[in-house]
Design a protein around this nucleic acid. Structure first.
Lengths: 345, 345
DNA sequence: TTGTACGCGTTATCAG
DNA sequence: CTGATAACGCGTACAA
């Protein structure tokens, strides 16, 4: 019960009969102060149970050691991996995360950006909402030179860095894979092309078709929210097609839609992959549970979060000037599992 | 580009030719200041692009409007729902979340608690790590009367409130359900009984057995990390038993272990639920994907997060004295799906 | 290498 | 209802 009142640097100063200024410097390990004095200060601090007052410090230094994280949703497997990776990278450097979600809503994203700004975060990590159309709400950050790092759902901005995977390449490869399995009527379940991830996946799919001499059919391209319901709806759409118009494969831009589409088709007694082969994106846990297992694209949210934070912190510490290059692309591996192997065409 | 220097309350004061003190009061909507003055202040603030300096404010008022959240893992469906719920409840009240994860490690939990404390969070929300044995690391909070709210993985502490579901009751009901399906050798896959959630689920299971006149067999009780691997291991264990020693049902304390146990058994050609019926806990998305669907206990992480935050904030605002009662129990519904319905015994 | 003195932007106290 | 003025705890020119 020694802790009643907060201990300040003045208490340490008094205790050591030195000035508060020296204590302040000593606490920051400023090499300008005598090494033995520094040691004494550290000891006294521990002895007295001192904890630095972040506000007073922030008020003076204008640094919060806080990073704002703005995501569409918290509750997806991918995003929680990203956050976990971020937290792991930030914590050892003494940075904290303030996390907010936009609920895929541009308006809420805007509001959250204001909050982050007012909280004076040292930097911002952001993955854009489904329907965000411009970056005006980030202007305050740009204006004040507060570093912004985009990840996953990015937007090219010359003064910011982006961390993404090669969505085009992955989509290309997985589509090509379906072609190699003998599929030639490959349907695509896509998302809003306002977002790079969905635009690039669509483009990769289209390019792969083209390179294989297959036509891109509007009828076999559905764009939607990629939710469970969207997956079910897509299945209904397929079932409503005349048998000869049906796709022989589906490449979905995420696993959620793919899996729920599969489930509905299965309950309508279509065989997977014999009647319709499937491929998804994200390597969500459900992709390993569905029978047959879903072919999908694995990319580590953890790594992405880690890289985003590390780059931001390096920049904050002035260690790197990575902002000269403004995009970092991560590997994204394709996972080939049962679904494709069982393919008998 | 009107924003070069920060606008302060002094700028507003000068602009309106009133004192900074009044501006400060007006900004807080203090009823002591004239309504029309308040309005003028608000307008001037907007006009000049004022944003309050949180540090200065925190320094004076000793409030951070920040809530610390300490969880075992970020990347589970349940926990991300909880966080989403928390964020939704905190944000409209002007509170921010600082989130850290213990990785199920008591040591890391300890370290994070220190960080939270030093960041001067207004309150702490915590779900205990797998192996946390005592609450010493929270003493600083208790000592300073910083409210701590436990959720899900709680620990009775007289000065704190807990938000939990009725784990005992849910486990009891789901076990009873298996019994009603005709199962009488029901295995239990449990977690560390140091944690209330696993202890209570085990107890509910045992009580249900007892009330049905069934014996509790040590052989049919495995305790472990409830991971995917643990599910697979449990399946192997079952397969290694002599057929007459095998369980005819499994109640797992979470869906992850249940589903992966099912998958392994299925690939060994056991029929589910005819040979072995299954029940899980959490209503994880994978429980709806596995075939047959898993009977499970649905409890809303979202609601739990919401309630935890709301109670904390009410307490912070002095609205409620909920700390007189120290436990809030949420409903947890049992979901009965295909798995049980197909049961033919 | 250390100390002095001031200011960061608020809020709280006390008068008026 | 409003205004002066003094903290809050720390960082940093500047001086010594």
């Amino acid at each position: 019960m020694p802790e009643e009142r907060e201990i300040t640097i003045y208490d340490i100063a008094r205790h050591l009969k030195i000035s508060a200024a020296t204590v302040s410097r000593g606490l920051q390990n400023n090499p300008v102060v005598n090494k033995s004095t520094r040691k004494k200060i550290a000891e006294a601090a521990k002895l007295l149970g001192y904890r630095s007052n972040t506000f007073a410090s922030s008020l003076r230094s204008r640094q919060t050691h806080t990073i704002g994280v703005l995501v569409p949703r918290l509750n997806s497997h991918f995003m929680s991996s990203v956050l976990a990776g971020m937290e792991n990278a930030a914590s050892p450097h003494g940075y904290n995360l303030i996390i907010a979600q936009s609920q895929e809503n541009a308006e809420k994203e805007k509001a959250n950006a204001v909050t982050m700004f007012n909280k004076r975060v040292d930097g911002l990590l952001i993955s854009l909402a489904y329907n965000t159309e411009n970056l005006q709400h980030l202007e305050p950050f740009f204006k004040r030179k507060i570093p912004v790092v985009f990840f996953d759902r990015v937007d090219l901005h010359k003064e910011s860095i982006s961390v993404v995977i090669d969505n085009f390449g992955a989509a290309y490869k997985i589509t090509q894979h379906l072609v190699e399995q003998g599929c030639h009527r490959i349907m695509h379940l896509g998302g809003n092309v306002l977002r790079n991830v969905y635009k690039d996946r669509l483009a990769g799919y289209q390019q792969a078709l083209k390179d294989s001499g297959l036509p891109f059919l509007e009828k076999l391209h559905i764009s939607g929210p990629l939710s469970e319901g969207a997956g079910t709806d897509a299945a209904r759409y397929i079932l409503d097609l005349a048998p000869e118009d049906r796709p022989d494969a589906v490449f979905s831009a995420n696993d959620t839609a793919a899996v729920h589409c599969m489930m509905t088709l299965k309950s309508a007694d279509l065989r997977i992959p014999e009647d319709i082969a499937f491929a998804g994106f994200n390597n969500d846990p459900i992709s390993k549970v569905i029978d047959p297992n879903l072919t999908t694209v694995d990319y580590s949210g953890d790594t992405m979060g880690n890289i985003a934070v590390t780059n931001l912190i390096n920049h904050l510490k002035g260690i790197s000037n990575l902002y000269t290059t403004n995009s970092i692309t991560l590997r994204a591996d394709m996972v080939v599992r049962a679904s494709s192997l069982k393919q008998i065409k």
